[in-house]
Computed example of a mutant assay.
Amino acid sequence: MTPDTFYYKVYEIVRLIPIGRVTTYGTLAKALGTARSSSMVGTAMIQAHDPRLQVPAHRVVNKNGLLTGKHHYETPTQMQELLEAEGIIIEDDQVKDFKKVFWNPLLEL
C-alpha cells in the first residue's frame, strides 16, 4: 500500500486516534478532504482488521456513536470489548457520552 492511496491515508489518521476516544467515518472523510466518502472509509475499516496493519479500527463508529462495524469482527462483541478495555462505556451498541469521547482530527492535525 503506497502513501498516496485512500486507504493508506485513512489508516494514518485512524492510528492517531487516542486510546479511549472515538471518531466517525464521516469525520475521517472530511479530514481527508473527501466529505462524501464516508462509505469508502467504512470499507477501509473492514480491510483494516489485518493485524499487520496495526489500525485501531474499533475506534471508528457511525455519526451517532453506534457500533455499526461490529459484525466485521471475529465475534459480535469484540468491537465493544476493545472499546470497553480502553474505558469507553457502551450501552445497546452505542458509545455512552459520545460527545465527550469524540475525537476530531480536524482539530488535531
Rank of each mutant, 00 (worst) to 15 (best):
P18S: 12
T34S: 05
V101C: 06
E12A: 09
K9L: 04
A35R: 09
G20C: 12
H72V: 12
A57I: 07
R52A: 13
I46V: 13
V60M: 08
T75K: 12
V10R: 02
G42C: 05
A57Q: 03
S37G: 06
N104L: 06
Q47T: 02
Q94W: 06
L28N: 02
I19W: 10
L28G: 02
T5K: 07
P105M: 07
D50H: 12
N104V: 00
V55T: 05
T24W: 05
T34W: 10
R59L: 05
R36G: 09
G42P: 01
V61R: 03
L16D: 05
K70G: 01
V95P: 02
V41I: 08
E91N: 14
G20I: 07
Y73S: 07
H58C: 05
V10M: 13
V60C: 11
E74R: 15
E74T: 14
V14S: 02
E108I: 15
V61S: 04
D97K: 15
R36W: 11
A35D: 11
M79A: 12
R59W: 10
K70I: 00
K96R: 14
Y11W: 15
M79D: 03
P51M: 12
Q80S: 14
A48N: 04
Y8E: 12
Y7A: 07
H49S: 05
P105S: 14
Q94A: 15
V14N: 01
L53R: 04
I90Y: 06
S37L: 13
T2Q: 13
D93P: 04
V22M: 10
P76S: 10
V61K: 02
V22G: 03
T2E: 08
W103G: 01
A48R: 00
L82S: 14
I90W: 08
H71L: 14
A48S: 10
T77F: 13
M45N: 01
L28Y: 04
L109N: 10
K30E: 13
Y7G: 00
D50R: 10
Y8V: 00
I89M: 07
T75A: 07
L67T: 05
L83T: 03
F6Y: 13
M45S: 03
R21Q: 10
E108P: 03
E81C: 01
A31H: 01
I90R: 08
H71P: 10
K96P: 03
T34E: 14
G69Q: 13
V14Q: 02
D4N: 11
T5I: 11
A31Q: 07
G42V: 03
V41N: 01
T2M: 13
A57F: 06
D97F: 11
V95S: 08
L82C: 12
R21S: 11
H71N: 15
Y73F: 15
A31L: 04
E12R: 15
K70D: 00
R59D: 03
T77G: 09
T43A: 06
R52F: 09
A44S: 10
A48V: 07
G65N: 04
L67D: 02
P105Y: 11
V41D: 00
P76Q: 07
F98V: 02
L83E: 05
T2S: 13
Q54F: 04
T23A: 14
I17Q: 04
Q47N: 05
